[in-house]
């Protein structure tokens, strides 16, 4: 019954296009979207941690630079940032390839958002943890890196996972700067076959699969962290 319904809705030609395009879209997903996300998010986390720490530790000039960076990045659209770097900078003499441009923009962008997440998590660690560290003879930096930051990163794990999932979807914007990732490939197939509804739904489904896998990983990660007795009294 259902099969009959489908075959009347989707004729054999369309079905062929969908099957054919599935791998065509999935391959740039595996070779571009995932590497782009993985590299940019890793760099973003490093930037975020440094940015959060200089604010938390109240390092004079660096703190102001951190605030300025967050203010600019959070206050401007991601798409505009991509254009500035890829189309704008060459005019100032900085030529940059599409993929590195995307890595740069996505890592700076997620760096700013995650910095705020991590800063809030650092501030949520009870002040007694710091004092106890002093009392057993540890230095400020030793306490930060061994006691405060690990606890903060655990607290920040769920919101950081959200940022990661957002980034997977945001990488579709890289199509605008000629990165041939999943969305761009889909657009090309649509131009050739003129089946926008089916194909855009198909690429949406692939993003959904990626996000679902990440959500599952997030749940597993949280379980593992909780098994250390971090959460829940």
């Amino acid at each position: 019954m259902e099969g009959k319904y489908l075959t009347t809705m989707i004729d054999a030609r369309l079905w062929g296009i969908l099957v054919d395009s599935f791998t065509k879209i999935l391959i740039p997903g595996l070779t571009l979207t995932i590497p782009l996300t993985a590299i940019a998010f890793t760099l973003g986390l490093i930037i975020a941690t440094i940015t959060a720490l200089v604010q938390f530790a109240n390092v004079k000039v660096l703190k102001q630079i951190a605030r300025f960076y967050i203010w600019v990045v959070r206050g401007t659209p991601l798409l505009v940032q991509l254009f500035v770097v890829f189309y704008g900078l060459p005019h100032a003499g900085f030529l940059i390839e599409p993929f590195p441009a995307a890595v740069l923009v996505f890592s700076l962008n997620s760096g700013a958002y995650c910095a705020e997440t991590i800063r809030a998590a650092l501030e949520s660690v009870p002040v007694g943890q710091m004092e106890a560290g002093y009392c057993v003879g540890m230095s400020y930096l030793q306490i930060i890196f061994r006691i405060i930051l690990p606890q903060a990163l655990r607290t920040a794990f769920p919101p950081l996972s959200n940022s990661l999932i957002s980034m997977v979807k945001d990488t579709s914007l890289a199509a605008n700067i000629t990165v041939a990732e999943m969305f761009m490939v889909t657009q090309r197939i649509v131009a050739r076959t003129y089946e926008p509804l089916a194909l855009y739904l198909e690429v949406a489904l692939i993003y959904l699969i990626f996000s679902t896998v990440l959500t599952k990983l997030q749940n597993m990660g949280e379980k593992k962290l909780n098994s250390y007795g971090h959460k829940g009294d």
Binding site: G128, Q129, A132, C135, G137, I147, Q151, H230
Partner: peptide
């Protein structure tokens, strides 16, 4: 101060154990 603290111990009212250790 840090040299001094190495010669003393402190036990807090609310324990303040390192929660990640």
């Amino acid at each position: 101060i840090s040299a001094l603290r190495k010669q003393t111990g402190f036990v807090f009212q609310n324990y303040n154990l390192f929660l990640n250790k």
